[in-house]
Amino acid sequence: MNAMGLLNYWFVIVLMMIGFYVLIAQGNLVKKIVGLNIFQTSVFVFYISMGKITGATAPILDSDWSVYSNPLPHVLILTAIVVGVATTALGLSLTVRIHEAYGSVEEDEINEMDE
């Protein structure tokens, strides 16, 4: 196993850390959701790339091929993508309502208002 063979996992980790950092460091509620999305996307990439088998084709029956990629992780992640979309939609609609109620989407300003 050399480093190149694990390249997809390196990308996953980098993407995950970018997303996680944005999620923690940003005080803007919309940017936090962007961070959450990047964080979740890295997991999608992780699942999709782990189903790939070297020298295999897409999992559609074909007489020329005998090795297929594993379709199950892809199917699983379809579910997770749907969940991610729902989370984003809910998060953004909450942000809209927070903006209506406070007139701001900056965390520190909102916290000041509630003191």
């Binding site: 998060g91 909450l94 927070i98 109620a101 406070y102 509630d114």
Partner: peptide, 8 residues
């Protein structure tokens, strides 16, 4: 309105 922040 703090319910919104809590939920977020």
């Amino acid at each position: 309105r703090r319910a919104l922040i809590a939920s977020y």
